Simulated assay, not measured.
Amino acid sequence: MKKSIISLFLIILSAQWSFAQNSATEQKIKDLSKEKWQWMADKNVDKLAALFHDKSKFVHMSGTWKKQEELDIIKSGSIWYKKADVHDVAVEIVDDTAILWNRITLTAVVRGSDAVTEFTVTEVYKKLGNDWKLLALTFSSVRDTHQIKH
Rank of each mutant, 00 (worst) to 15 (best):
M1F: 05
M1Q: 12
K2Y: 12
K2C: 06
I5C: 01
I6R: 09
L8W: 12
F9G: 13
F9C: 11
I11S: 04
I11R: 00
A15P: 05
Q16P: 02
Q16V: 10
F19I: 03
Q21M: 08
Q21A: 04
N22V: 01
S23Q: 10
S23L: 13
T25P: 00
E26Q: 07
E26I: 06
E26G: 01
Q27N: 15
Q27D: 07
Q27L: 08
K30E: 15
K36E: 11
K36L: 05
W37I: 12
A41H: 12
A41L: 08
N44V: 07
D46Y: 03
K47F: 02
L48M: 15
A49L: 05
A50D: 13
F52P: 02
F52Q: 00
H53M: 03
D54H: 06
K55F: 04
K55H: 08
K57T: 15
F58W: 15
V59D: 01
S62Q: 14
G63H: 10
W65Y: 15
K66E: 11
K67T: 03
K67L: 10
Q68C: 05
E69Y: 01
E70C: 04
L71M: 08
L71P: 11
I73P: 05
I74G: 01
I74L: 03
S76F: 07
G77E: 08
S78G: 07
S78E: 14
I79S: 14
I79A: 01
I79T: 07
W80M: 13
W80K: 05
K82G: 11
K83A: 04
K83R: 11
K83G: 06
D85N: 13
H87E: 12
V91L: 00
D95H: 08
T97M: 06
A98R: 00
I99R: 00
L100Q: 03
L100V: 03
W101G: 03
W101V: 05
R103D: 00
R103N: 00
T105L: 15
T107C: 10
V109T: 14
V110T: 12
V110M: 03
R111E: 14
G112S: 11
S113T: 08
A115F: 05
E118Y: 09
E118W: 11
E118L: 01
T120D: 07
T120H: 08
V121W: 07
T122N: 05
E123N: 09
K126S: 10
K126Y: 00
K127P: 01
L128F: 00
L128H: 02
L128K: 05
N130T: 11
N130Y: 05
D131P: 03
L134W: 09
L134H: 06
L135W: 14
L135P: 07
L137S: 12
F139C: 02
S140K: 08
S140M: 09
S141F: 13
S141D: 09
S141Q: 12
V142D: 02
V142C: 00
R143E: 15
Q147K: 03
K149A: 07
K149M: 09
